[in-house]
Nucleic acid binder design. Structure first.
Length: 842
RNA sequence: GGGCGGUUAGCUCAGCUGGUGAGAGCGCCCGCCUUACAAGCGGGAGGUCGCAGGUUCGAGCCCUGCACCGCCCACCA
């Protein structure tokens, strides 16, 4: 490591590993349990899948959570960021199966036990990858206490919840229409289904009437499912068909008798107004079938092929093959009246990408209504606050319309359902296997989200009454992506309330989705993904954290590499500002000893920056928090304060104030840009511990100084006016000009120094510049072109006159004077006065 | 088919319960190696706030309609 003197740039790649080593070998991230949840601060990380690699969403969410965690840790709270990973049933199983295929084998060939063992090995090898990547970001998760949703303790929690809900009658087994995913060969939940637009053919097929009096035409995009038709339905008020209700049609190809029924679900204005009813393969038909007690026939099996019930001509064919054969047969029999192209939305599996095959299956379900009601209530009454607020409406609406949750999955990797069967009608449900011979366990596992739903408390040891649970539950904040608000967040609230009697967290922050810079989705397949680790390599972890927070919003945002670079510049700026202070000051204790108005000014502005930062975090406005830091460091500390100090000798008093301001700034910025601040902190005299565990003192009202703020505001405005004048007059930046300042009182010297004016000179005035509270006469001799100067002065007078006219017009408006708030009218009057004085001065 | 959100400077975005001349970063132009930083510093140009009406003393902000863009929900075969 070179000395600070030699390093003119902040080099993240050199600094980060060194700082990380200090953090991870310390105890900063691991709190011993103690105290109460109210005085402690905790966040449960959304558990990354063990198949996961860090993507932009993780990086943003990690930055958000770590900023909150570090900030509250520095406020002196006992802080725990709960770490763990999710077994991610389908995703992990698919990954391992893929590897097996590459080896020329399969899970079936291995058998269940060996396969599960294989997955555990896979997890040991790759499952920790993403955790290492979180460390690169500087995330102070509790790495000493890592959980996994298939750990023994966690499994116990899952089984206990299952059994309790079963005993309560909320978990039950039923033959019901499910979303069958032929890709994973498992049922999946409604939330794992996505609609896609598909071009299909709509076939209009004529079914003859039983009594030979004619035919009834039905429309379908899936003619192969007609093999399972058990009725034809029409609308009860449809005059065209009223006389047919109660009669029957004959199913072509099969010859089955189909009763013609009346049901208001049928639309009279779609197709022919008559609907073939296939309770076994269409969710709506299933509902209608149950209403009318129709037979439920399944002709498509779980393997996506036609079953024996489809008849010998079709059994064994894929659904697509069967469709072709059915259409051919119908055509031959002259039953197809016509066909048309038809574009509509069709459900697909998000997991496998295959088209969902709705079918009736024996599955486990969870009744949700009873659990949903209190989960709605806690958001309504404010025990949980969702940010941004618009998301709480989505949450409530979803819960109000919630439907039973299919929780069983036909997979091997996961929590196997704690149910055993013996013979045809014995069922045992319990956390421990049953006594006696002949019991066979239900082969299915639970939906991954069942176990994730217990995350905030199962990770802390629930159902045992552990010290961790007593100290950190309920957690404070849950920060997550929008797409799992229902899948995960709502379920944690329901299960948390049911089993712990408390909310699992008090605030939910729904972060932005980061899109590619062109507004498309970031995705590997589109080639639009940006790897956060590569960005960290390029710009540093601080830059990435800052940039992600700065671009975050209450809505989706495009990835902005400019914001990342802004973060990089901030880190570099802070690095150099610190060098300036550290290499010039005397080593003294850092209690502030303000000697000048600008000392008092920066101390006051520092309090404002602290207060603003705190408020922005309270509001979950991370962009404002990050950009507010930037503004303070650039716009106040560096552009003005450090420049002001250059005029003085750095005596003990000056040094003390500068060191104090530097130290407080590093503390304030640390939650957002932890690496550079930690590095610099190690160079601040009198500090030996980690900045990450140093106490951040709240804003101190005693240090607020309105007089100093007003005075320096005027100085800044004057300096800017003078620099602007100089630039326009073409005066060299280095040239010191004689001048006389009228006004600005004690700050005249400061203004003169910043604007490179010499107040001792005596050349005859050649130009006048208006500044707040006075004028500056600059004696620039022949540097100044009198004509240009006259033109500029005239333009300035014109501008002032226009402003004056505007203000006068406003004050002449009776409506304004009568109805606007008095202080506003007063301010307008004062503005007018000031403008008139400025005009007079010229 | 319903909801929700967006449309502000060339680009990406801020603009609090309507209130003084609409902001930032990047980009652009001009000038500077002013001994913390050239990944820097100083100065500057650039906007009919999507369109059309309305309410108000006053509208980027409120109301109505329209146009695009995005997201969510939904059982029209």
């Amino acid at each position: 490591m070179t000395t600070l003197q030699e390093r003119t740039r902040f080099e993240p790649s050199e600094v980060e590993p060194r700082i990380a080593e200090r953090w991870w070998s310390s105890a900063l991230h691991h709190p011993e349990p103690g105290g109460t949840p109210r005085e402690n601060y905790s966040i449960a990380v959304p558990p990354p899948n063990i198949t996961g690699v860090l993507h932009m969403g993780h990086a943003l969410n990690g930055s958000v959570q770590d900023t909150l965690i570090r900030y509250h840790r520095m406020l002196g709270m006992r802080t725990k960021w709960i770490l763990g990973t999710d077994h991610a049933g389908i995703a992990t199983q698919a990954q391992v199966e893929k590897a097996l295929r590459a080896e020329g084998t399969s899970r079936e060939a291995l058998g269940r036990e060996a396969f599960v063992e294989r997955v555990w090995q896979w997890r040991a090898k790759y499952g920790g990858q993403i955790i290492e990547q979180f460390k690169r970001l500087g995330a102070t998760l509790d790495y000493d206490d890592e959980r996994f949703t298939l750990d023994d303790g966690y499994v116990r929690a899952v089984l206990e919840v299952f059994v309790a809900l079963y005993r309560k009658g909320l978990i039950y087994r039923d033959h019901y229409m499910v979303n069958w995913d032929p890709g994973t060969r498992s049922a999946i939940s409604d939330l794992e289904v996505e609609d896609r637009e598909v071009d299909d053919t709509l076939f209009h097929v004529a079914y003859p009437l039983e009594d030979g009096s004619g035919e009834i035409v039905v429309a379908t995009v899936r003619p192969e499912t007609m093999l399972a038709d058990t009725a034809v339905a029409v609308h009860p008020d449809d005059d065209r068909y009223r006389h047919l209700v109660g009669k029957a049609a004959i199913l072509p190809l099969i010859g089955r008798r189909l009763p013609i029924i009346a049901d208001p679900y049928v639309k009279t204005d779609f197709g022919s107004g008559a609907l073939k009813i296939t309770p076994g393969h269409d969710p709506n038909d299933f509902e209608i079938g149950r209403r009318h007690e129709l037979d439920e026939i399944s002709v498509i099996g779980e393997d996506g092929r036609m079953t024996a019930a489809a008849g010998p001509d079709y059994a064994g064919l894929t659904a697509a093959e069967a469709q072709a054969k059915v259409v051919a047969a119908l055509t031959e029999q002259g039953r197809i009246r016509h066909t048309e192209g038809y574009r509509h939305t069709v459900p697909f599996s998000q997991r496998s990408g295959e088209r969902i095959e709705p079918l009736i299956s024996l599955q486990w379900f969870m009744a949700m209504g009873e659990l949903a009601a209190p989960a709605i209530e806690v958001v309504r009454d404010g025990r949980i606050t969702i940010h941004p607020e618009s998301q709480s409406r989505r949450y409530i609406e979803w819960l109000e319309n919630i439907r039973p949750w299919c929780i069983s999955r036909q997979l091997w990797w996961g929590h196997q359902i704690p149910v055993w069967y013996r013979g045809a009608d014995e069922t045992y449900v319990g956390t421990e296997p049953p006594e006696g011979e002949g019991w066979v366990r239900d082969p299915d596992v639970l939906d991954t989200w069942f176990s994730s739903g217990l995350w905030p408390f199962a990770t802390l040891g629930w159902p045992d009454d552990t010290p961790e649970l007593r100290a950190f539950h309920p957690t404070d904040v849950l920060s997550t992506a929008r797409d799992i608000l229902f899948l995960w967040v709502a379920r944690m609230v329901m299960l948390g309330l049911e089993f712990t009697g408390d909310v699992p967290f008090e605030d939910v922050y729904v972060h932005s989705v980061i899109q590619a810079p062109d507004g498309r989705r970031m995705s590997k397949s589109l080639g639009t993904g940006i790897d956060p680790l590569e960005e960290i390599e390029r710009h540093g972890a601080d830059a990435v954290r800052f940039g992600l927070l700065a671009m975050s919003s209450t809505q989706d945002v495009r990835y902005s590499s400019e914001k990342i670079q802004q973060g990089q510049r901030l880190a570099n700026k802070l690095f150099n500002a610190s060098r300036f202070v550290l290499l010039n000051v005397q080593e003294v204790d850092a209690a502030p000893r303000p000697q000048t108005v600008y000392d008092r000014w920066i101390l006051s502005r520092l309090q404002a920056a602290k207060a603003t930062f705190a408020r922005n975090l309270d509001d979950f406005d991370f962009a404002k928090a990050a950009l507010g830091l930037y503004d303070f460091v650039y716009g106040e500390l560096c552009d003005w304060y450090l420049e002001f100090t250059k005029g003085r000798e750095f005596d003990a008093e000056q040094s003390a104030t500068m060191l104090y301001v530097l130290g407080e700034t590093l503390k304030l910025a640390h939650p957002v840009i932890p690496f550079v601040t930690e590095e610099l902190w190690s160079h601040v005299p009198g500090t030996d511990g980690l900045l990450a565990v140093t106490r951040l003192t709240p804003p101190d009202d005693v240090l607020r100084d309105e007089a100093a703020e007003a005075e320096i505001a005027a100085v800044i405005e004057a300096v800017q006016a003078l620099r602007s004048w100089r630039d326009e007059a073409g005066v060299k930046p280095g040239q010191v000009l004689p001048a006389r300042i009228d006004g600005l009182d004690g700050s005249a010297g400061l203004v003169a120094r910043m604007a490179r004016l010499d107040l001792e000179g005596d050349d005859g005035p050649t130009a006048t510049v208006a500044v707040p509270g006075g004028t500056v006469e600059i004696r620039a001799g022949d540097l100044v072109d009198p004509e240009a100067e006259a033109r500029k002065a005239a333009a300035e007078r014109d501008r002032l006159r226009r402003e004056i006219a505007r203000a006068e017009g406003k004050l002449a408006n009776e409506g304004f004077v009568a109805k606007a708030p008095p202080q506003l009218v007063q301010a307008e009057r004062e503005k007018l006065e000031r403008l008139r004085r400025e005009l007079d001065g010229l």
